[in-house]
Amino acid sequence: MEPAVFAVVHEDTPPVQPAPPPPPQVQGGGGWRVGARRVLSLVFFLATTAAFVVSAYRSRHSARDLALAIATQFLGTVLWFCFVKLKQLRGDHTRDAAEVAVELRRARIAVWVLLVALGCTIAVQVTVAKHGLALKLVAWGVTLVVLGLLFYLLFFRKDAAERADLGRGQDAAAGRPATQLHKLFPEEV
């Protein structure tokens, strides 16, 4: 037989408050992957910086080439920060879903504008270096195809559309569309 435990509650004792819920955990980014991403980001940054230094040194006598190298480095750096912002917004489940959706849309538009500017800058660099109309047309054609594909991936892909519509019939906490299991009937409310 187990002993009975009794508790005495005084009237002047404040009620016990439950502990706050733990902060949401980031999925899919634990362990060695976080360190590998940071190392990869650092290597990418160092490689692009080294490429910029080399191209700036080679084009130091030509103002046009130097301006194109500086513009390419600047656009690439700003684009990198916009991608980081997009990633943060996709994982942000602490704020209102409508606010996140508006900021996500703005970040996508900023990424698109930067991609177009960077693509045109690279196409200009390639067409200046090549001689012949056919090669110039191929360079611009490839640029347009790549920009069109990136536009589709940013704005019309199924995953992008679901995230843009957060808060409208979706499970905002999980960031995915609400299924029949998540919906309640009017009698159950």
Rank of each mutant, 00 (worst) to 15 (best):
E99T: 12
K85T: 12
D92T: 04
A71K: 06
F74V: 13
E99L: 12
L79T: 02
V116Y: 06
A97M: 05
V116C: 01
H131D: 11
S62F: 01
W112A: 13
Q73R: 10
E99F: 08
E99G: 14
R58N: 06
L115K: 03
V124K: 10
A123S: 11
T94C: 00
V128W: 09
R108T: 07
Q88C: 09
I109Q: 08
L118C: 06
V113E: 04
E99M: 11
L66I: 00
V78D: 00
V84M: 08
L89T: 04
V78Y: 10
D65P: 00
A107N: 03
H61R: 15
Q88P: 03
A71R: 07
V111C: 13
S62K: 04
R106H: 14
T77C: 04
L79M: 08
H61F: 14
R64Q: 07
T127N: 00
V113Y: 12
L133V: 11
L79E: 03
R58M: 03
V78N: 01
G132Y: 02
C82G: 12
V126G: 06
L89M: 02
F83Y: 09
K85V: 14
Q125W: 00
A110G: 08
L86K: 08
A101S: 07
L79H: 08
H93Y: 10
E103L: 09
F81L: 15
D96E: 11
S62Y: 05
T77Y: 13
A123V: 06
D65H: 01
L114V: 02
A123H: 01
L79A: 06
A98R: 15
D96Y: 08
E99N: 14
I70P: 03
L133P: 02
L75N: 01
W112F: 15
A129K: 07
Y57V: 11
E103Y: 05
V111L: 15
E103V: 05
K85P: 03
L66A: 10
A63H: 14
E99A: 10
A71Y: 04
V100G: 00
R60D: 00
A117F: 10
Y57E: 07
K130A: 14
R108C: 11
E103D: 12
V102I: 07
D96L: 11
H61K: 15
D96C: 09
L86S: 08
A97R: 10
G76T: 02
G91Y: 06
G91Q: 04
L114A: 02
A107W: 07
F74C: 07
L66G: 08
W112L: 12
H61C: 09
D65M: 04
R108A: 11
L133D: 13
W112D: 09
T121V: 06
D92S: 06
Y57Q: 09
T94R: 03
K87G: 13
Q125L: 09
D92G: 00
A69L: 03
K85L: 15
A129C: 00
C120V: 12
I122R: 14
G132E: 04
A67Q: 11
G76L: 10
E103Q: 03
H93V: 15
I70N: 05
V102R: 09
V126N: 06
A101W: 07
R64H: 05
I109L: 15
F83M: 11
A101T: 01
R106P: 10
A97L: 06
S59W: 02
F81M: 11
L66F: 12
Y57P: 05
A129I: 03
Y57F: 14
Q88Y: 04
A107R: 00
T72D: 12
R105C: 10
A129N: 04
R108K: 13
C82I: 12
V100C: 05
A71G: 10
A98Y: 10
